[in-house]
Design a protein around this nucleic acid. Structure first.
Ligand code: ZN
Ligand code: ZN
Ligand code: ZN
Ligand code: ZN
Lengths: 172, 172
DNA sequence: ACTTGCAATGTTATATCATCACATAGAAAT
DNA sequence: ATTTCTATGTGATGATATAACATTGCAAGT
């Protein structure tokens, strides 16, 4: 049984960071990076996991778990939520994908080779998402954590606002 | 996710930001701040909204919408989800509360008087949340947004890890 | 070969979170 | 007083996520 899809932006071209890019080989390189990571860390990029990553990379946008599940089912995998959630958890844990908490959705990492603090710009109008290369950790944050005795394991930043496309639209 | 409820007249130190503070009057000051804000902005701190804020302030932790709804119902307000979600939306919009996306939960702002980038430390073990005073905007983030033509409206940062209490526990 | 162990996948059922659509009630503006 | 807009209330539904448990496939150890 197919569930309704919630995502608003179905028809965007190949935007990464709201700019166009050569999408053709970026899938292959990302998959290769995932394979390398798995080999180096003693975990397995199994068929479902690989397929889930391919789906995310194909779209280059944030996808809900059930949207991914639909495609996994179409590809012959299981049809129950846990199938998608487990694959996604694996990808997130291993740095191939991120969860956009604001959207309850998942997106392939745009630069999985380098270690980074995931940071995103999320359009409130069309739900498009761009991952920002943000190598700068917030120093004040780190200090506060240290003072509080909190051991940070991962930090994510999410900015919401209007993407260039929707800014243009709002002007007309 | 289950945590002890903190009562208003508790003698022991109340933790905010994993540190102790004087909880007794911080509710009143926060409510006063909300009232001032509403007066200055032509919006109304109606009974439900005020009660929802009081609930959040009482607890000083992240509460799910349905948890808040329960208490609103107990206080004589409506019993349907929209009642809580609408009140919470108002509080978030007007800076009296934040949504912790990671937890799908809400928390009273710990320093609602000053404009700030909401930043939180979230314990993966016990789900406790501390709001960090992070007046430092991530510069790289801002630059990236500018380059991309993205108009940031709000940024939030969420760090997950282990709170001091759970670090202690894990050592035993 | 066999069994024991473990990780991964699958399924059913259920829990949790969130919004829609529409009716009614109050406040504010004319 | 009438209109208008905001706010509250309700029932119904949608969307997201996990629990619990059976099954499979593979690898070590015997
Ligand atoms: Zn990334
Ligand atoms: Zn947009
Ligand atoms: Zn705050
Ligand atoms: Zn903790």
């Amino acid at each position: 049984m197919t569930r309704a899809i919630q995502t608003k932006n179905e028809k965007l071209p190949d935007p990464v960071g709201f700019a166009t890019h050569d999408h053709n080989d970026c899938i292959d390189t990302a998959i290769a990076a995932a394979e390398t990571h798995c080999a180096n860390n003693g975990v397995r990029l199994t068929p479902v996991r690989r397929k889930a990553l391919e789906i995310l990379l194909q779209e280059h946008r944030a996808l809900g778990a059930y949207e991914i599940l639909d495609r996994l089912r179409d590809a012959g995998f299981g049809s129950q939520p846990a199938v998608a959630y487990r694959a996604l958890e694996f990808l997130v844990t291993n740095g191939s994908a991120h969860k956009i908490e604001r959207l309850n959705a998942f997106i392939a990492c745009a630069h999985s080779k380098v270690s980074h603090v995931p940071a995103f710009m999320i359009c409130t109008e069309c739900d498009s998402v761009a991952e920002v290369q943000s190598n700068l950790t917030n120093k004040a944050f780190g200090n506060a954590a240290h003072v509080a005795g909190f051991r940070i394991e991962q930090t994510t930043m999410e900015a919401v606002g209007l993407c260039p496309v929707c800014i243009d639209k709002s002007k007309t």
